[in-house]
Design a protein around this nucleic acid. Structure first.
Lengths: 201, 201
DNA sequence: TATATAATACCGACCGGTCGTTATGTTATA
DNA sequence: TATAACATAACGACCGGTCGGTATTATATA
């Protein structure tokens, strides 16, 4: 195996294991030694590839938030109409909210550090505001195509994003407290009913 | 000053300062020494009154969640109709979401630890489920009094709670990212429009 | 092609410091 | 005087990060 191969191999091994640890135990409770042990590398390798534990975390959330944005964009752009697009989104989120504790845990870690650590905050807020914009754009499209009534796109977008975040939050806190996938689906249905265009008006 | 007086005085001093620290810096980043220093007491006093740092945190969130429940109950019970009750709630939450970083910070800390620490989880989930029940009961009342349409009370309650949580989350992460008070108000308005009884039907 | 040199990738013991907790001593109240 | 209510200092575990050294691979030289 050549240098670049084994380099990327240990790098990704560290990142993968760090993701798991951060998600399941939290950033603070996860030690560098622990990540290294589970990844099968030494501390030397860790600090050869990364400046600090913090940079690993930042790199993780960065790639993760970018991935999410791409996913959101593709779902939005592929949808025929806005209501079906929203339902598509709900369908995509459902398995995540129901089974993927890893993703939920990472989200939680992200949120709890974003409001205290300046670097994490700036790495989080920018993509998050773009998510708001994606949602708002979707609503605008819905108004333009006639499927949605005359609602405020920005407010409605923020409502949708807040609802998603809140559902993620509750699902990660209390996974068995409700059928979260169903709650998600019905919530979207309910909101859609509220913002869809009423013809009789 | 007699013994019981000064005892409760230092006790509450510790609890107050712990609240501030946990909220602004987070549980892990807050040291026992820091709490003691700001509260003007010694470590000896701290461990004379509390078993551990964790028990302080648990006591804090317990009283805090109980307070919240009382507040929710009172707002709900004092409202004339359900729609006005929801708008009242939004009005109550608005100053919190706009200005009170302390409360938001504590919430964040609560959430991030509830999914990892078993004691925190059990202390959190029980009241949270009661909140869901309060919201669901409010919706049921609305259907009964004829102000709301035939929506699912449980799902709608969870929707409302998720939305609130999500708004809290975003407001604490990105306080200047939006006029969160306005978003809250408009979101409630929008949902109300969706679930209010339509007479023409 | 064989060998020397250099650069890359990695190892693991160790350091400085922090943190929660405890053991012991001191003061105020009953 | 006895006990409750504190203060002080120290302990021991742990953790992020460093550093001298070692393989492993790449490159230059002959």
């Amino acid at each position: 195996m050549n240098n670049t191969q084994r380099s990327t191999q240990t790098r990704t091994a560290i990142l993968d294991e760090a993701t798991r640890c951060f998600a399941s135990e939290g950033y603070d409770a996860t030690g560098v030694a622990e990540i290294c042990e589970k990844a099968g590398v030494s501390k030397g390798a860790f600090y050869y590839h990364f400046d600090s534990k913090e940079t690993v975390f930042l790199e993780l959330i960065d790639s993760w938030l970018k991935n999410l944005e791409v996913t959101l964009q593709s779902v939005v752009s592929q949808s025929e109409t806005v209501p079906t697009g929203l339902l598509d989104m709900a369908g995509r989120l459902q398995p995540v909210i129901e089974h993927n504790q890893e993703i939920l845990g990472l989200f939680l870690e992200l949120w709890s550090h974003a409001s205290r650590n300046e670097k994490v905050r700036s790495a989080t807020i920018a993509p998050y505001r773009r998510y708001q914009e994606i949602f708002a754009g979707l609503v605008r499209r819905g108004i333009a195509e006639g499927t949605l009534g005359e609602v405020d796109p920005i407010i409605t977008g923020q409502l949708l994003l807040s609802l998603s975040s809140g559902l993620f939050l509750q699902a990660s806190m209390d996974p068995t407290g409700a059928d979260w996938g169903k709650v998600l689906h019905n919530s979207i249905d309910l909101i859609l009913k509220g913002i869809e265009r009423k013809d009789e008006k």
